[in-house]
């Protein structure tokens, strides 16, 4: 198991392995998203209260879930990078930031669009909304700090410390709806055994969450590949690879 772990952490090995992985991840995620979106927009019945407007959950919930999940991934990768000094982990953390910020932004925008017909306002200074906005700012701060350092090794370490400190916000986002009385509705699907949503509304959502997650993994692989190549462009394996032909196409 450990040799597998060390192999994965070696940039050339990761580069070779991920090359085969990306098309599968991407293809599967697009299929799932297509199925889930069709199920959500066409097959699912309209909500008895919210009508057709509820259908935005098929984008909003996966985005919001990924927005916070990617932050945790980023912090864990940053922690691994800083503790075991694994360069690949830092590359993963750095690649997570842009993707996570994009999903967080998507969740904020779709939430605003949803809020207008449901709550009568695009934005409310409410615990869930505000803590999610803070999450977005944390991503921006992380990226700003990285780009401020010229030295890559220092940028890795400094941004890793910041990512770990920022983790305190994630539970606040998660539980804000339960801790404070919030305008945001409570969790719908995570109530184990008794989800407060009917099956034909639920399955497209779950399919879309899986699809979005795979899409994230595909994007992550692509970004980490680029990041690794940029960091190791002077190493022998990278030079051979680049001399061999088109940068992405060679094993």
């Amino acid at each position: 198991m450990w040799t597998w772990f060390y192999q994965l952490a070696s940039p050339p090995h990761f580069y070779r392995m991920s090359h085969a992985l990306v098309p599968w991840l991407l293809g599967l995620s697009l299929v799932l998203i297509a199925v889930g979106t069709y199920g959500g927009l066409v097959l699912a019945p309209p909500d008895y209260q919210q009508g057709d407007a509820f259908r935005i959950i098929y984008v909003h919930v996966p985005s919001a879930y990924l927005g916070s999940m990617i932050y945790v991934t980023m912090a864990v990768a940053a922690g691994i990078g800083i503790i075991w000094r694994i360069k690949l982990a830092h590359a993963v953390a750095a690649s997570c930031a842009v993707i996570g910020a994009s999903f967080t932004f998507a969740a904020l925008v779709t939430g605003a669009v949803w809020g207008k017909p449901m709550w009568g306002t695009y934005w409310e200074w409410d615990p869930r909304l505000t803590s999610f906005l803070v999450l977005f700012f944390l991503y921006l701060g992380y990226m700003a700090l990285r780009s401020a350092y010229d030295d890559l090794a220092k940028a890795d370490q400094a941004s890793a410390i910041l990512a770990l400190v920022g983790v305190v916000n994630v539970p606040i986002v998660k539980y804000s709806v339960e801790w404070w009385s919030s305008i945001h509705q409570g969790p719908t699907i995570s109530k184990i055994g008794m989800p407060s949503i009917t099956g034909d509304m639920l399955w497209p959502l779950l399919v879309n969450i899986a699809g979005f997650t795979l899409f994230f993994l595909a994007m992550l692989c692509i970004r980490v590949r680029a990041e690794v190549l940029e960091r190791e462009f002077n190493a022998r394996w990278a030079r051979e690879l680049l001399r061999g032909g088109a940068a992405g196409g060679v094993n």
């Binding site: 505000t130 803070v134 700012f137 944390l138 700090l145 401020a148 350092y149």
Partner: peptide, 17 residues
């Protein structure tokens, strides 16, 4: 860092809220 000031605010204000 040379341009510490504004960056400092971006980093810590979200955590201070």
């Amino acid at each position: 860092l040379r341009q510490g000031g504004a960056l400092l605010a971006v980093l810590v204000v979200p955590l201070m809220l």
